[in-house]
Amino acid sequence: MNISVVIPLLNEQESLNELYNWIAKVMQSNSFSYEIIFIDDGSSDDSWATIQSLSKSDPNVKGIRFLRNYGKSQALHAGFEAASGDVIITMDADLQDNPEEIPELYKMITEEQYDLVSGWKKKRYDSVIAKNLPSKLFNAAARRTSGVKLHDFNCGLKAYKNKVIKNIDVHGEMHRYIPVLAKNAGFAKIGEKVVLHQARKYGKTKFGMSRFINGFLDLVTIWFMSRFGKRPMHFFGLIGTLLFLVGFCFSLYLGIDKLFIETKGRLISQRPEFYIALTAMILGTQFFLAGFIGEIMLTTKRDKRRYNVSQKISL
Rank of each mutant, 00 (worst) to 15 (best):
M233G: 07
M233D: 13
M233L: 13
M233Y: 11
M233I: 14
H234K: 12
H234W: 10
F235Y: 12
F236Q: 05
G237D: 07
G237L: 04
G237N: 10
L238W: 13
L238F: 13
L238M: 13
L238P: 11
I239T: 13
I239F: 15
I239D: 08
I239Y: 11
G240D: 08
G240F: 08
G240V: 05
G240R: 15
T241S: 15
T241F: 14
T241H: 14
L242N: 14
L242V: 15
L242H: 13
L242Y: 12
L243Y: 14
L243W: 15
L243M: 15
L243E: 15
F244R: 09
F244Q: 08
F244I: 06
F244V: 08
F244H: 11
L245M: 11
L245E: 14
L245F: 12
L245K: 13
V246L: 13
V246E: 04
V246R: 06
G247V: 09
G247T: 12
G247R: 01
F248T: 06
F248W: 09
F248E: 11
F248C: 08
F248G: 05
C249H: 10
C249V: 14
C249G: 13
C249S: 14
F250H: 06
F250T: 00
F250Y: 11
F250A: 04
S251R: 12
S251K: 09
S251V: 05
Y253R: 05
L254K: 05
L254N: 03
L254F: 03
G255S: 09
G255P: 10
I256F: 10
I256P: 01
I256Q: 03
I256W: 01
I256K: 02
I256G: 00
D257K: 06
D257I: 07
D257R: 14
K258M: 15
K258S: 13
K258Q: 08
L259P: 00
L259D: 02
F260S: 06
I261S: 02
I261K: 03
I261N: 02
I261L: 10
E262K: 05
T263I: 05
T263E: 09
K264F: 03
K264E: 12
G265Y: 03
G265Q: 06
G265N: 06
G265E: 05
G265F: 06
R266G: 10
L267H: 07
L267R: 02
L267Q: 04
L267T: 02
L267W: 09
I268N: 03
I268P: 00
I268R: 04
I268Q: 01
S269N: 06
S269Q: 04
S269D: 01
Q270C: 05
Q270R: 02
R271P: 00
R271G: 01
P272R: 01
P272C: 03
E273I: 00
E273Y: 02
F274A: 00
Y275M: 05
Y275A: 06
Y275V: 01
Y275N: 00
Y275E: 08
